[in-house]
Design a protein around this nucleic acid. Structure first.
Length: 294
DNA sequence: TCTGGGGTCCTAGGACCC
DNA sequence: TCTGGGGTCCTAGGACCC
């Protein structure tokens, strides 16, 4: 699929969005109806043929053979099944891929999307976690359909995510694919088997974490402006402290020393720790030399 | 579920600047 | 200086995702 020239956004180690719109435009023959996968809308058959004309979904159907081929290749080369969702945007594609999990191929047609979403719990929407779910439940919103019908101000329920959430509820999503692979932060943390405040143990741990982080920075030729330490206590309270540096750091020694300095200054190891961690952000290309402004 | 690890993005307050 | 407005950067915490 990569060879087709599709735009790819890698989300994680085993998940990615592919924009096949260019590719599909070049595909000659539309898929035959025999090639179509089952569409996902549960209990919604042909009864709503009005609205969006069927032609709008044509590009989606054309992508299906590509999705099949992708699954076949993954299995042939890795022995792994994969789930693929075909839809007109990221939100729906993700939902579709989740729909038939172990080895699925699901298409959500444009003309069915709002209806397809209605019976689903709000939690299926990307960006709605435990807290937002609670907030929505509080006002009686349980399904995406409830969300669609809710007349109130979404901002009050979900903050700045509110307006977007409303759009999502109708299956509308205009987020572009982001093919870049820039890293914004690098971190390392460890939870101990037994809580500890023994300095040698903590130091060894920090040392390793600093080295891990430095190695990653080095690989990407990055330097970090901000360094953060994190500790967690027995009661699970978690505290972070950070410093922003004048001169970005790159090497393990610097990172380690700064971490020790922060921990000491803030007296964070006054009780045994369950977790200790280290992270850097404010990443930028390593300064080879400062170029003259011209 | 006595709660891992590596990330991204948002929020809110404060310092500081013009 | 009993007190504006707009902006940036920094800090700490938290929601969410895989």
């Amino acid at each position: 699929v990569a060879q087709t020239g599709a735009l790819i956004e890698q989300v994680s180690i085993d998940e990615a969005y592919l924009d096949l719109s260019e590719v599909v435009a070049r595909v000659v023959a539309p898929a035959t109806s025999a090639d179509r996968p089952p569409t996902a809308a549960p209990g919604t058959g042909a009864e709503h043929s009005g609205g969006t004309p069927w032609e709008a979904d044509d590009p989606l159907f054309r992508a299906v053979p590509l999705a099949r081929e992708l699954k076949r290749r993954i299995f042939a080369e890795r022995g792994l099944t994969a789930s693929v969702g075909v839809a007109a945007n990221k939100l729906l594609a993700k939902l579709a891929s989740d729909f038939n999990k172990p080895d699925g191929l699901t298409l959500i047609p444009e003309r069915d999307k709002a209806l397809f979403l209605r019976p689903m719990p709000v939690r299926v929407i990307h960006g709605v976690g435990k807290v937002t779910e609670q907030a929505l439940n509080q006002v009686g919103i349980r399904t995406v359909g409830d969300l669609q019908d809710y007349p109130g101000e979404m901002r009050a329920l979900a903050g700045s995510f509110g307006p977007k959430l409303k759009q999502f509820a109708f299956g509308e999503d205009d987020r572009p694919l982001e093919p870049g692979d820039e890293v914004k932060s690098v971190s390392s943390e460890e939870t101990f088997l037994h809580d500890t405040d023994e300095r040698p143990v903590l130091r060894r741990c920090l040392r390793e974490q600093a080295e891990e982080i430095a190695a990653k920075l080095k690989r990407r030729r990055l330097a970090a402006k901000t360094l953060q330490v994190k500790v967690r206590y027995r009661d699970f309270t978690t505290v972070t402290r950070q410093v922003t540096l004048e001169d970005p750091v790159t090497d393990a020694g610097q990172i380690y020393r700064l971490a020790c300095f922060l921990l000491a200054r803030e007296r964070l190891v006054s009780r045994p720790l369950r977790l200790i961690g280290l992270g850097v952000s404010g990443l930028g290309e390593i300064a080879g030399r400062q170029l003259a402004l011209l």
